[in-house]
């Protein structure tokens, strides 16, 4: 469990993290989403003890990072944006060095390294120098490094940056798999990635958390209500009269459909109300069949742009 209270970090006069607080429960997979320079990496560096906060506190499993940094660091596996690799070593030598650094006991060390290498798919390159490995393999070695010591919490900063689409899918699957046993915090500016693997998203902009929710709920909570779009085989007046009989609608908009004698209707309904059946029945009873019905969800891209844009305007 990660508890962050009023965390602030200043670099000289620049405010990188501005009084943020959040809690991450055990076993959650969380995504920090934000444009470059939003403060994601700074928060991660503070959580892993690489840098110190200017104010506020961070606790990992109840232990304050400043009070017992060594105990906290044992619970965390960290993959920074640039994997910290000793390129003159082979992955096997490197992981053995990381075992030394993390104080992993000597018994079964070899077996554990083998298992992790197999999991991230680097066994066949384990005897090559890291210097000669491709970006994708280096990223995997970095991920293996984070997994050494079987930490409760994995913090992954932009884990798929610079990878090709095949490698991205591979790493995503791996993260989803890791999320079953670990608490995972990952950062990204790629929205689909966060949507694909995270249970909760925190949108960070200019050092502040501007939204935090499940990816599918972000749109609903931020912009209110259930939004629905239908196309019906009806004249405008017919549609008007059918819609006016419906209850629980906050507002609606009717416009001519692309096909002849059809209309498109946009509904905005109460938050807790599922209007799909009512809409279907009303239009069926009016003899104006529905040709299409779909909920309107803002994509994470739209939400992100909307939120970060409004921050800019502020």
């Amino acid at each position: 469990m990660i508890e962050v209270e009023q965390l602030t970090k200043r670099y000289g006069r620049t405010l990188a993290v501005d009084d943020i607080s959040f809690t991450i429960e055990e076993g959650e997979v969380i995504g920090f989403l934000g444009p470059n320079g939003a403060g994601k990496s700074t928060v991660m560096n503070i959580l892993t003890g690489c840098i110190s906060a200017s104010a506020g506190r961070a606790k990992i499993n109840g232990i304050d990072i400043l009070e017992d940094p060594s105990a906290v660091k044992k619970m965390i596996g960290y993959l920074p944006e640039n994997p910290p690799l000793y390129v003159e070593m082979t992955p096997r030598e490197y992981l053995s060095t990381v075992c030394d650094l993390k104080g992993v006991s000597r018994d079964q060390r070899k077996m554990k390294i083998e298992r992790i290498m197999e999991k991230v798919g680097i066994t066949h390159v384990s005897r090559r120098l890291i210097r000669n490995l491709s970006k994708g393999y280096r990223q995997r070695v970095g991920l293996a490094q984070a997994m050494i010591g079987d930490p409760d919490i994995l913090i992954l900063d932009e884990p798929t940056v610079g990878l090709d689409p095949g490698q991205i899918i591979g790493i995503r699957n791996l993260i989803a798999d890791l999320g079953k046993k670990h608490t995972v915090v990952l950062s990204s500016h790629i929205l689909s990635e966060v949507q694909a693997v995270c249970q909760r998203v925190m949108i960070i902009s200019k050092g502040k958390i501007i939204a935090s929710d499940r990816p599918e709920d972000l749109s609903r909570h931020l912009f209110g209500g259930n939004r629905l779009f239908i196309t019906a085989a009806a004249a405008r007046e017919q549609a008007e009269s059918t819609v006016s009989k419906l209850t629980g609608i906050i507002d609606y908009k009717i416009e001519a459909g692309e096909e002849h004698d059809t209309v498109n209707v946009y509904f905005n309904a109460d938050d807790d109300r599922d209007i799909r059946r009512d809409v279907f029945n009303a239009f069926a009873e009016a003899g104006t069949p529905l040709l299409m019905m779909r909920p309107i969800d803002m994509s994470l891209e739209e939400i992100f742009l909307d939120l970060t844009r409004s921050e800019v305007e502020l």
């Binding site: 690489c50 960290y78 910290p84």
Partner: peptide, 9 residues
């Protein structure tokens, strides 16, 4: 790689 050292116990 200093990050690896600083984030290790």
């Amino acid at each position: 790689t200093d990050i690896l050292l600083l984030s290790s116990p």
